[in-house]
């Protein structure tokens, strides 16, 4: 049982990381205003939301499994308060920080209509901090963090998210950028 919990805890962490990478990329795609292939924009928005929620579910699995696991013995304080853990406190703390940020981003995302656009947006921007912190936690804390398959996976995610961010910062990022830069049509 313990072996199963341990394996499940580790794998759910990896799955969560991959899903968060996809969520970030989908978020950036959404912001560009472009539909992806034949998927309309409103479906892209829903996809972004659902992938993010799914990633959060796997993150919860990851945490609960490691709380129940007799080897990891994660306690409730370590789940919410970073850098107090007994084993690799810094790297584990990064995971805690990322989890706190995820909680903030998800909660404000679900309450967007009540909070108003400004607060929602300010908190949502924290996603850009959350993702690299989570990646750092995976590499530094994970048992598989330096194994070959994980390094390849991490590098692939980093390249994909990095490319999306670079595109986000480019001048023609917005679907409407050209039209809005003016010039006679």
């Amino acid at each position: 049982m313990d072996n199963a919990l341990w394996a499940f805890g580790r794998m759910s962490g990896v799955v969560s990381l991959v899903l968060f990478s996809v969520a970030v990329i989908l978020g950036i795609l959404n912001r560009s205003g472009r539909p992806l292939f034949a998927i309309p924009r409103f479906s892209m928005t829903l996809l972004h939301r659902n992938v993010s929620l799914l990633a959060t579910v796997f993150l919860v699995f990851h945490i609960v499994a490691l709380m129940l696991d007799s080897y990891a013995k994660l306690n409730v304080i370590d789940v919410f308060v970073p850098f107090l853990g007994g084993f690799k406190p810094f790297w584990q703390g990064l995971g805690t920080v990322a989890f706190d940020l995820v909680l903030a981003v998800v909660a404000t995302g679900l309450l967007r209509h009540r909070l108003g656009q400004r607060s929602f947006r300010a908190i949502h921007w924290l996603s850009y901090a959350m993702w690299p912190i989570a990646l750092g936690h995976a590499i530094g804390n994970g048992t598989d963090g330096t194994s070959k398959w994980f390094v390849v996976l991490a590098a692939g995610s980093l390249a994909a998210v990095g490319a999306a961010v670079a595109w986000r910062l480019s001048a023609n990022f917005l679907e409407t950028a050209k039209a809005r830069q003016g010039g006679l049509s």
């Binding site: 039209a179 809005r180 003016g182 010039g183 006679l184 049509s185």
Partner: peptide, 13 residues
Amino acid sequence: MFGLPAMARVLSA
């Protein structure tokens, strides 16, 4: 924001 400058450019032309 975008329509008025576009109109102005055309009329100036």
